[in-house]
């Protein structure tokens, strides 16, 4: 503003008038709209923006009984501690690995299921399959992890029973007691819960593809698979990219509920994620500063990845989110 002032003092008044899109009269005319929206905006500022102030805790040696002015400032000590702590490195590995497994499994299974659902000709049968496949999405993770634990249990768990009947294994496996199975179990649980639900968006995208493209492909002699490859998949590419961007931004958020609920002392090295780490150090042990530092790290990485993915999508000429 100051620069504009010195450079072109003459041009200032009209420019300023242009910048000011509203007048007091408008505000008076729109007072109902203001009453309907501004209090809610203040509400969201309080609940979403104000807590960010708490991030200062990560740069302090925070003690709850001291006032803000009395806190001891320690700079990046907490972050330094995090990245030299074997515990945190392991937690980070678990979070990224499970986030990545969930991302890949989630996308691949949902797209395949959408393609297969799209091939069903009988409307009623398709409707029934869809309705049933949505069901687990509406169950809480509490219920789903309860179901997973029951299915995998050694006494009477259906997974062990089926695998034994098929002679794939000779004796029941303690699935939830061994770290090497844990990531796979979490990935499979996600697929079981969300695969049907995730097809909705792809089926909508497939439905919006111009039928003339399929007719043209048919005239050119394309069979079912060629049409999938050259018409359906390119047709849903935009949707896939948008969803991928959203998921990449949330890759570090892939883990709290499942891991917390399915994890136990025996698999803790494979099950603990950043969120569980924050919970454990923060609320359980009272090390608020360290826990907040972990939380900040997660948020910053998430936003960075989201922006990166968005930029890559822009380069590739795809639709973007931001």
């Amino acid at each position: 503003m100051a620069e504009t002032l010195t450079q072109q003092p003459v041009a200032r008044p009209p420019k300023r008038k242009k910048e000011r899109r509203f007048t007091w009269k408008q505000i008076k005319d729109q007072r109902q709209l203001i009453w309907m929206s501004v209090p809610l905006t203040l509400y969201i500022m309080l609940f979403a923006y104000y807590p960010v102030w708490g991030w200062t805790m990560a740069f302090q040696n925070y003690r709850p009984n001291k006032s803000f002015g009395e806190q001891e400032w320690v700079g990046f000590k907490q972050f330094h501690f995090l990245f030299t702590d074997d515990n945190f490195i392991r937690v980070l590995r678990n979070t990224v690995a499970m986030g990545f497994i969930n991302l890949v499994l989630g996308f691949v299974t949902a797209i395949i299921l959408a393609l297969l659902l799209n091939e069903i000709r009988k409307v009623l049968w398709k409707r029934v399959v869809q309705t049933i496949s949505y069901l687990p999405h509406f169950l809480s993770w509490i219920i789903v992890t309860g179901i997973v634990a029951t299915s995998l249990s050694i006494n009477d768990g259906i997974v062990n029973i089926v695998l034994m009947k098929l002679h794939i294994i000779n004796e029941p496996i303690l699935w939830l007691s061994e770290g090497k199975y844990f990531w796979g179990i979490v990935g499979a649980s996600h697929v079981w819960k969300e695969v049907g639900w995730n097809t909705i968006i792809y089926l909508a995208a497939i439905a919006s593809i111009d039928p003339a493209l399929y007719e043209a492909a048919e005239i050119d002699g394309a069979n079912r698979y060629k049409k999938m490859q050259y018409v359906t998949l390119p047709g849903i590419k935009g949707t896939v990219v948008i969803l991928l961007i959203m998921s990449i931004g949330h890759i570090l958020e892939a883990g709290f509920e499942v891991q917390y609920l399915l994890g136990n002392g025996l698999v803790v090295d494979w099950a603990e994620t950043i969120d569980i780490f924050v919970l454990k150090y923060g609320l359980a042990q009272g090390n608020y500063s360290l826990a907040t530092a972990g939380g900040i790290f997660k948020t910053v990485v998430s936003i960075t990845m989201l922006l990166l993915a968005n930029g890559v999508a822009k380069r590739l000429g795809e639709e973007r989110l931001l």
């Binding site: 905006t41 104000y50 807590p51 102030w53 708490g54 991030w55 805790m57 939380g295």
Partner: peptide
């Protein structure tokens, strides 16, 4: 309402909340 004076500001304030979260501990203190 396209003529609403605070439309842009308020939209941005809300949309941004989709991309960050203060985290467990600060929220707990709030």
């Amino acid at each position: 309402r396209k003529d609403y004076v605070f439309r842009k500001v308020i939209t941005v304030i809300f949309v941004l909340t989709m991309y960050f979260n203060a985290g467990l501990i600060p929220n707990y203190f709030l």
